[in-house]
Nucleic acid binder design. Sequence first.
DNA 1: TGCCGGAATGATGTATACAAATGATCCATA
DNA 2: TATGGATCATTTGTATACATCATTCCGGCA
Lengths: 250, 250
Amino acid sequence: MAERDSDRSVSQTVRAQLRLRDLILSGDLRPGERISELQAVETTGASRTPVRMALVRLEEEGLLEAIPSGGFTVKAFSERDVLDSIELRGTLEGLAARFAAERGVSSRDLEPLKGCLDEIDGLVQQDRISIEAFSSYVTLNARFHALLTELSRSPPLIRQIDRASALPFASPSGFVMTQSELPQAHETLLIAQDQHRVVIDAIENREGARAEAIMREHARLASRNLRLVLKNKTYFDLLPGLALIRTAGD
Amino acid sequence: MAERDSDRSVSQTVRAQLRLRDLILSGDLRPGERISELQAVETTGASRTPVRMALVRLEEEGLLEAIPSGGFTVKAFSERDVLDSIELRGTLEGLAARFAAERGVSSRDLEPLKGCLDEIDGLVQQDRISIEAFSSYVTLNARFHALLTELSRSPPLIRQIDRASALPFASPSGFVMTQSELPQAHETLLIAQDQHRVVIDAIENREGARAEAIMREHARLASRNLRLVLKNKTYFDLLPGLALIRTAGD
DNA sequence: TGCCGGAATGATGTATACAAATGATCCATA
DNA sequence: TATGGATCATTTGTATACATCATTCCGGCA
């Protein structure tokens, strides 16, 4: 009870949530497995109250499933579930882009997005993309999607997109790192970046339908990557949460 | 402490959640107002633990907003927020309809939907629609939308639609009762029912784009009603949650 | 008179004890 | 041997006490 207080700033609830999320996404807690509160208390070091709080939040996050008689199990996802989650996220981002286009955005608001775009350009135009560059891409890509979502200026929509992106394999940057080992990596990044450029262009020209369509298609790049990754399980370590997907083989 | 145990079957958490939700939607707790746990403990009769649980769930539901320093306030919605929530729900239902159309549904699965359709026909084809008929419509309409959503056979999407429909003014049947006093009530119901028929037809013919488009448009009927209702605040009692909308006048 | 600081008050975060319910195991009986 | 029931263990749901943090209000000082 002396070395346990790493990060005294955050609450026990948050700490328990982070720790449990890690355990779930890393696969230490297996899909379908029931989570014992007492066991969670031991592994997190927090008491039952914050642990219970964390469990409720993880359920809302979509990583846990409530058992009718009480308690939680780790959620299992089919490949179809994941593909649908990606399509769902793409649809919502498409709506955000359409809102932005229809409602209009000031050049002041577009500035940070274009800056982000330029930074990504600097990365993808290299001949050989290093692991570090992929890592930077993940950060920049996440920022781009966050900024784009905010252009909708719709709190309810932003909220819903955040929730849809909470699952790591459904998030915009989920499959970027898994690409790093794929032969078609560079090509995919170039295409993705072009889509980034197109959606900005569409928003500037107030082409709502175009902006919406391109964001939907943009998400489908992730679908393609999922299929590739599931065929070749070598890359499992690169995307936490992949352990939650029960494939036909299991 | 004797008459308080109404419904001993459900947990204190659920009871507190129901009670607090009622207080929020009825307007007894005003938008922006901070919710005191101790105060909530008094009004619900439960202790702090289940009350805190209920508050967390109501936050996820979208009715409360977490204060960074701790605690919750009742969320306030702008007219735009509500309109966006409706558009959002329509978009998700559109996606569900498209999934259903593209993936195909058996006539076995369509049966209950068509039955629902027929029952609604029986209601809207009356010359004069009684209040009781409106009430029945609400039930049948909710069932129709639930069945339709399930046709997507996509648990992630179903889950997201449920969450998007949690706010009463965003739910498919939200504005039906408010229509009951409007002159164009009958016309609106006829149109809505025609859209129900069209979406089923589109799904049967595997016309994904058509199914999606009609569900989006279907949700916009609710948008129209919201605008009518906000102009004429007489109908506020008919839709719980309307008290959460801060109009320009406030 | 206005501003700054500290104390007091009330809030939330956490831990833990207790109650109730669920699920499992074992024995008895058919 | 299989099934039924009862007891026991483990789990979750609830209540409450305590600690810690934020907020507010009052008084002193510039």
